[in-house]
Design a protein around this nucleic acid. Structure first.
Lengths: 62, 62
DNA sequence: GCTTCATGTAAAAGAAACTTTACATGGAAA
DNA sequence: TTTCCATGTAAAGTTTCTTTTACATGAAGC
């Protein structure tokens, strides 16, 4: 799965640590997802979409 | 997370085994998701939405 | 009655996601 | 130049997701 998290986060002026705080996960988790080391769980994907104010399909693609 | 997989599957006239085949997962995985024992991975959620011809948010909710 | 099919569930094992701790690098800025 | 911040990554450990195998139940049909 691909995602545009890094771009979306940068557009919002957030650091990885900022986003991790909003998502209540570790900074390493944000980093790993941004760099495609693994995909988030479905609940985390929902939270990501919510804080980005986008639909899941607008953040992630198969 | 809640989901309406059981209803959506029934509407389509599919057994759990049918759906598992389409999703390329075990029947137990379909059963576990339908009965809320755990949430699917994000890739599997995408596949489920695709075979249901719905958006992820139309199948799952936080 | 028997058989078949759909469903629910369990145990054990493996894979994937996530955590904590820790260290390295590079850029900006004082 | 040294301090600070953001980023990348690693190792070890826990939790969550998924598989395989297996067994139980109930409904429907013969």
């Amino acid at each position: 799965m691909k995602n545009s998290l890094k771009t979306l986060r940068a557009e919002r002026g957030w650091s990885q640590a900022d986003l991790a705080g909003l998502l209540k996960v570790s900074r390493q988790t944000v980093n790993a997802i941004e760099n495609g080391r693994y995909d988030p769980s479905l609940p985390l994907a929902f939270t990501i979409a919510r804080v980005m104010q986008l639909r899941i399909e607008e953040v992630f693609e198969e």
